[in-house]
Every structure is written in C-alpha cells, then in structure tokens.
C-alpha cells in the first residue's frame, strides 16, 4: 500500500469524521431548544453510557425479580407441599437495547418473508411474458405507495384476522413485519424479473439444446444468472425496509427503535435530545451493518467472486 492509498483508505475517512464531530461540538451548544441546548458529541456519548447503565440495571432488576419469586414459591412449598404457586414473567420497561433487538428481528422477519414471495414471483415473471404482463400493472401501481399508507389497512386487517386467545406473536410485531414485507416486495420482484429476463440468449439456447426440464433450467441457469440482480433488489429492499420500519414504529407505537425515539420525544427531559441522537446513530450503524451483511452473503452465494461488489 503506497502513501496515497493509505491516505485515501484510512486517513481521509478519519479526518472526515473528525471534522464532522468538530462542527457538531462547536455548533450544537449555540442552538437552545425548549429541552435545553442541543447536545454535542460528548454529551451524546454520555447518554449512550447512561443507556447502557439503564439496561444493565433493568437486567439486574429482572434477575432479582425471578430470585424473589423463586424464594417466595420455595418457602410456600416448604410450608405446604400442595400450595398453589404462581410463576409470573417479568414485565419491566423495554430498554434501548431491547428495542434494538425488537427492530432487527422485525425487519428481518418481514424481509425474509418478502424474499420468499418476491424471488419466486420475479423468476416466474421474468420467464413468462404473460405472467409479467399480468403482474406489471399491479407492481407499477403499488410500488410508489409509501408503505406507511398501508399501515392503517394492515393494522385493521391483522386485528380482524389474527384472533387468538394465546397469540404466538404480538399484533404490533405482525403489523410492523407486514409493513416491512410490503415495502420489500416491489424492488425485489422488479430486479429479479429484470435479472431473469436478461439471461444470455446463448445460455438459453444451451438449455434448449440440452432439453433441460423447467426446474433444472431454473436451478442451473436462471438462478445463477440472476443472482447479482436478485441481490441488488434485496439490498435495495432491506435499505428501504429499515427506514420504513423506524417510521412505522414511531407512527404506530409498535415496540422498536422508532418507539424509543418517539417516547423520548414525548418524554421531553433534558436527556431526551441526546438519547434520540444516540438512537439516530445506532439506526445508521445498523442500516450500514445490514447492507454489509447482505454484501457478505452475496459474496458467499454468487459464483462471480471477481465482480466489483459495492
């Protein structure tokens, strides 16, 4: 690695971040809101450690809660072996880190489900002009709709259809996951269709000469050819999904990072702005990590290791 490369790959990004932090630190205190001055990076970092402490305290409380419950039940059983003991789950307030986990699980659920629907549909639409003609108007109509517009409809339908005395999943979880699913469908379908429709004519001829069955054709020729485009669609989807999910959580008060941001905003303490900024940075980092994860997966799955993957 020569000096120029070293500068470009290590020093330049570092300088960029440093400059950003400096402007933030200097500029932030000059803006005074109803919740106090806008926190700078140092204060935001303090809020971050505060959130970690809060999380650890909550975990400690949970452990203690179960200990107390166990001891209580043990003494009750010692006095009277037939005593009825109750085991209740701990119901503390979800911490920042609980909300992160909830959001990631939700986005992945909706995303994976959408993949299972969109990739096969895209393949069929790419292979058959008729199916494409049938699907295209629907895709074009629904693609520009903000998934948030779906949220009320999804909420109403889920509460009407998903009726159970002992639900495996929370309704709010299903609402959020379905909203994510709806926004993941379109980019994945469109990109898969384009990828499948653009398979080299020569490879299609090879398949015809060999008289490959439909299924072998899809497995051996269509899927490997279309993998780069499928991944383009998936990465676009996941990026949009993550943004939409946060907004949906804010709007519908479904558990997750979006709810955390909204709760802090409503809370309006002197710590709130700092905590929201922690959330913003974490949301960004997770979005970045999700995209990198998809890239790693693409490298694993794709045959073309030499292709430039960005």
């Amino acid at each position: 690695m020569n000096t120029k490369q070293l500068f470009q790959t290590l020093v330049a990004p570092f300088l960029g971040i440093l400059l950003f932090l400096a402007i933030w630190q200097i500029g932030a205190p000059k803006i005074v809101t109803s919740l106090g001055a806008v926190p700078g990076p140092v204060q935001v970092f303090e809020q971050f450690t505060g959130l970690i402490d809060e999380h650890q305290a909550a975990r400690q409380k949970e452990v203690e809660f179960y200990q107390r419950q166990e001891e209580r039940n043990a003494t009750a059983l010692a006095e009277d072996p037939n005593a009825e003991v109750s085991i209740r789950p701990y119901t503390g307030k979800a911490t920042f880190f609980d909300q992160i986990v909830t959001s990631i699980v939700t986005v992945m659920t909706g995303f994976v489900l959408a993949g299972f629907i969109a990739i096969p549909l895209g393949i069929v639409a790419g292979l058959s002009q008729t199916v494409y003609a049938a699907l295209n108007p629907l895709i074009q109509l629904f693609k520009p709709v903000s998934p948030l517009a779906w949220l009320p409809i999804v909420t109403m339908i889920v509460s009407a259809v998903y009726v159970s005395d002992d639900p495996t999943f929370d309704k709010s979880f299903i609402n959020s996951a379905l909203t994510v699913l709806l926004c993941c469908l379109w980019p994945t379908i469109i990109n898969t269709t384009v990828g499948v429709a653009n398979i080299s004519k020569d490879l299609q001829n090879v398949s015809k000469v060999l008289r490959l069955s439909w299924w072998t054709h899809v497995r051996k020729i269509v899927l490997p050819s279309a993998i780069p485009m499928i991944f383009t669609g998936l990465r676009l989807s996941l990026g949009i999904a993550w943004m939409v999910l946060i907004a949906a959580e804010m709007l519908a008060q479904n558990p997750g990072l979006g709810k955390f941001v909204w709760d802090e905003f409503q809370n309006g303490s002197s710590n709130s702005l700092g905590r929201i900024m922690v959330a913003v940075i974490v949301i960004g980092l997770i979005g970045f990590a999700l995209d990198r994860g998809m890239l790693l997966l693409q490298r694993q799955v794709s045959w073309d290791k030499s292709a430039a993957l960005r």
């Binding site: 080299s200 490879l203 001829n205 090879v206 015809k208 000469v209 060999l210 020729i221």
Partner: peptide
C-alpha cells in the same frame, strides 16, 4: 425442436460461467 442429438458448439463458447 432443439435436442442433444443435434449438439451445437456456439461461437462464443456459451459455457455456464458458474
């Protein structure tokens, strides 16, 4: 219809790159 009893060698090899 096409079939393997009339095998074709295409101009640009047409091997499956994967």
């Amino acid at each position: 219809e096409p079939g393997p009893e009339r095998a074709v060698v295409f101009q640009n090899h047409s091997l499956l790159p994967w």
